[in-house]
Design a protein around this nucleic acid. Sequence first.
DNA 1: CGGTAATCGAGACGGTACGTCTTGTCTTGTG
DNA 2: CACAAGACAAGACGTACCGTCTCGATTACCG
Lengths: 196, 196, 196, 196
Amino acid sequence: MADVDAAPRHRRQGSRRDPAIDEAVLATTRTLLIERGYAATTIDLIAATAGVSRPAIYRRWTSKAQLVHEAAFPDLGPEAPENDFAAEVTRLCRGAIRMYGDPVVREAIPGVLVDLRSDRRMRRLLSDRLEAAARSQLAERLDAAVDEGTARAVDADTLMDVIAGGAWYAVCVRRVKDTDRAGRDLAELVLRGVLR
Amino acid sequence: MADVDAAPRHRRQGSRRDPAIDEAVLATTRTLLIERGYAATTIDLIAATAGVSRPAIYRRWTSKAQLVHEAAFPDLGPEAPENDFAAEVTRLCRGAIRMYGDPVVREAIPGVLVDLRSDRRMRRLLSDRLEAAARSQLAERLDAAVDEGTARAVDADTLMDVIAGGAWYAVCVRRVKDTDRAGRDLAELVLRGVLR
Amino acid sequence: MADVDAAPRHRRQGSRRDPAIDEAVLATTRTLLIERGYAATTIDLIAATAGVSRPAIYRRWTSKAQLVHEAAFPDLGPEAPENDFAAEVTRLCRGAIRMYGDPVVREAIPGVLVDLRSDRRMRRLLSDRLEAAARSQLAERLDAAVDEGTARAVDADTLMDVIAGGAWYAVCVRRVKDTDRAGRDLAELVLRGVLR
Amino acid sequence: MADVDAAPRHRRQGSRRDPAIDEAVLATTRTLLIERGYAATTIDLIAATAGVSRPAIYRRWTSKAQLVHEAAFPDLGPEAPENDFAAEVTRLCRGAIRMYGDPVVREAIPGVLVDLRSDRRMRRLLSDRLEAAARSQLAERLDAAVDEGTARAVDADTLMDVIAGGAWYAVCVRRVKDTDRAGRDLAELVLRGVLR
DNA sequence: CGGTAATCGAGACGGTACGTCTTGTCTTGTG
DNA sequence: CACAAGACAAGACGTACCGTCTCGATTACCG
């Protein structure tokens, strides 16, 4: 019967990892990233601040980069895309600016890029997390809008580059303060470029 | 006696710095950045590979970040801007993609960002070098084009964000191979957004 | 009924410790001591090799030193002393050389000494086990022999030092191979020194 | 001329190692060995106490065992042997008791034995330092005394075993306090055994 | 026969030491 | 002076072991 061949039972014997430690470490990592930046956010410092031992951290994450990666880029859960193409572009612009506007993300990105330089798998995971989902959703919407005749046939990837890159540049390099306005400006410029 | 009361003589005693060392170090740094990335490009490794002593490096640059900064972002010498606004935008798009396409620059940027996090002066210097000149030139051309009636009145900073950020994203994140085509696509999308 | 008001009953409920584990651990410890020495004989390694869990070991012995102590120096059961003084000295010399000749003992001694440095109780226990019984027995025999006139009045402790220390040195430091001969030589030298 | 082809000049460029550091580390190591024993004498603790960095220690000694070895068993410089055989044995007994009586040596020996277990070269060096020289000197004196007819033909190695081992046992195991008396007792017993 | 208590494995935990590495400074001769 | 060679303090890195602990699962005795 169902019970028999159902759940493989997973045999989780022995103490479980204390989830409070995961939480404390991630929260501490976020705080320290903001306060001190990537370089000064030592594993030692994280451990001490979180009241946790260093091995407890290494048991969970194989490196500082992995830890920061998980601390800074939590799974966003797929946001519901807008039906209207213009609304979707606007949503993405705002979302990108909001994401890059998070000080944790801002501090984490370059550090993670440096440390994961030769870890192809992690780099892919990072870019997936940051934008791959949005990229493919956007492509679909664009196709539909082109079919409808509301959008011109531009390269979807270039469109995504412009949205994400423009947001990143505004927030991280130019350091705009008024993110609402920046989101509007960006969306407007991009939409002018793509709408018919 | 002439010598006695003659010119203050400036007392340039001792050996001059050997300019060959500057060159060797900068070239080695560029090579290592490409081959191994920022983190693995140790000052020690640079010194050994360049056949130079570590103090000779620290005599010239105050830190690894400064050295990489100079090695990766040489002064470009102001490129002559195009007179036509559309041509200028196109030139900037191509230029940005070419710059970010340089593997040295790609490896250097995140590392320098991490290490210079709290060095406000250097960060400013970096962004100046990368785009400030272009930004102001672009603003002038845009004003003129708006006056002529060929361009719409968009925010010049947002325009620059989109060009530089779009290029950065295409090259560094999406890792496009065909940079010529990417430049064209980017320029086209941007121009559609801004031209009347 | 005797049972009722007798022993406080100790309430021995639940499973008993598996004596096979004791044996397996002790045997494994001995093997590992010989093969790898004290430092490399990790509790983890013992547990894994013996097919036993770490807590099962700590339930039985409070520390690695205690475990090694029991593994290496099993209770010898009091050997019957010889009646003749000369025969007794000879017996002790042979016994000491045999004991220190055991590779397990040789590996264990320094390790236990280091780890039990500040455990006065255990150190005493160790020396008791190794030689205290023999020391007092020897003192008695020596007294008798002095009374009989067959031995000279030497310090019994010094005599024991010479026997045990000489044996230890021959076996552990000089690493003699022919233990029989070493025992004879030692006994002869000692007896010449003490017999009248 | 001699000077020309003499010394290979050794080309010692760069800073010399600071001999004050060697001294401070060795002295600190000796103090800590006495106060805390081998196990608690951490490299970290030595470094901190001596006011020295850890790498500075590892630059000089490859391991804790090597450092302790050098700290505890300094080269004794060959003591002048006595001409008279009996006097020589007495000198050796006293010397052995004095050496093993040094608390530094007492703490160091077991630790070094454990850690250098598989380093054949170091073990040999250790035993050489502790007794090999004395052993061969003693053998010569014994031969001469046998020729003279003052000593009986006993095994020289066994004789050395008895002296060194007896001293070690008296001091390290039995923990005699009155070392002068212990030296006399040991010498007397040994001499009775070997003199004709 | 069902409850109770001790065992067992597995393995996480805090703590601590290890030995290595890198950074940026300082020192010592040589040219 | 600049330079090479290299020692130095500071401190992070990642690994290893220790002895303790918490889990579930498994016995065995006891009422």
